[in-house]
Design a binder for these strands. Structure first.
Length: 271
DNA sequence: CGTGTGCCCTGACAGC
DNA sequence: TGCTGTCAGGGCACAC
């Protein structure tokens, strides 16, 4: 599913074809989205020029010269198809420029779209209380120490909380904790500063490596150009139940449930 | 405020 | 082959 590296890969792929282009058509295909499309999407955006693309946490941003930004979330099965040869029943929103056609395709419809004033992006509900970007300068061991102080919840669950760090999902939290040798079960307030000094670079490295590899192609994720990312083949713990730990410490990867989601870790080296 | 639970949705896959 | 059940995941509403 799309996490931060997949959204980043998507944004970069879209930027190649959308930046500085005029939108000639914007159409929504179905009314029964989990969250309805904002009214007047077409009227507002047709004729607008795309000034740039961006990302905040796992949200994609398409900025236009009409002081409006189109925000999209890919949910768990969303992707943008570029120049699709045939329409698909899960294409929910299509955008055209003079040279290309784009379809937001999302079988499970967990994703959604909104249109907001660019000047008010920071106060958009989902952004208003978000924590720092994991790849930005504000995520430091000292910041995390403060954010986790006194918290009894497991570090795994706290790292998924977008108010603490904005953009981490299940896969990369599991992977980063393995790299930092921290147990996902450890209470947030009991993670030492030394461990956080391993965790922050671990988060950055796993995300950056995945972006370099073009996003993982777990299940239904495909890059906008249709090529598969291949980070999935490099997972150290995610989905590796029963397999040997890559640290070759004799540990076997275990799966268990936290907050209704699966966690994987090596009980030997993650403490 | 912190914490825990359940819902939304479809397709892939396992097992019979 | 065809059916049934299970699972995946992010964000948010809601209860305590």
């Amino acid at each position: 599913m799309p996490e931060l590296p997949e959204v980043e890969t998507t944004i970069r792929g879209l930027a190649l074809h959308l930046e500085d282009r005029i939108l000639t058509s914007v159409r929504t295909m179905r009314p029964d989205m989990r969250r309805p499309f904002p009214a007047g999407l077409g009227q507002t955006l047709v004729g607008a020029r795309v000034t740039g693309l961006g990302r905040r946490a796992k949200f994609g941003l398409i900025h236009t010269d009409r002081a409006r930004t189109l925000i999209f979330h890919l949910g768990m099965s969303g992707r943008w198809r570029i120049d699709p040869e045939t329409p698909d029943k899960h294409d929910h929103l299509t955008i055209e420029t003079e040279t290309n056609r784009f379809a937001l395709n999302d079988p499970r419809r967990f994703g959604w779209v909104d249109l907001v004033d660019t000047a008010e992006l920071d106060s958009w509900p989902s952004f208003a209380s978000m924590g720092p970007e994991p790849l930005g300068p504000a995520l430091t061991p000292a910041y995390l120490k403060g954010a986790l102080a006194g918290r009894r919840q497991a570090i795994k669950l706290l790292l998924l909380d977008q108010r603490i760090v904005a953009g981490l999902g299940n896969i990369y939290v599991c992977e980063a904790l393995w790299r930092a040798r921290i147990s996902p079960k450890r209470a947030g307030g009991r993670v030492s500063l030394a461990a956080l000094e391993r965790l922050v670079p671990a988060i950055r490295e796993v995300l950056e490596q995945s972006i370099r590899d073009g996003g993982s192609s777990l299940r239904d994720f495909v890059r906008p150009d249709g090529e598969l990312g291949y980070f999935a083949t490099r997972f150290d713990v995610y989905g590796r139940t029963g397999q040997v730990c890559r640290r070759e410490d004799g540990g076997l990867i275990r799966r268990f449930e936290q907050g209704g989601r699966s966690s994987w870790y090596c009980p030997r080296c993650q403490r």
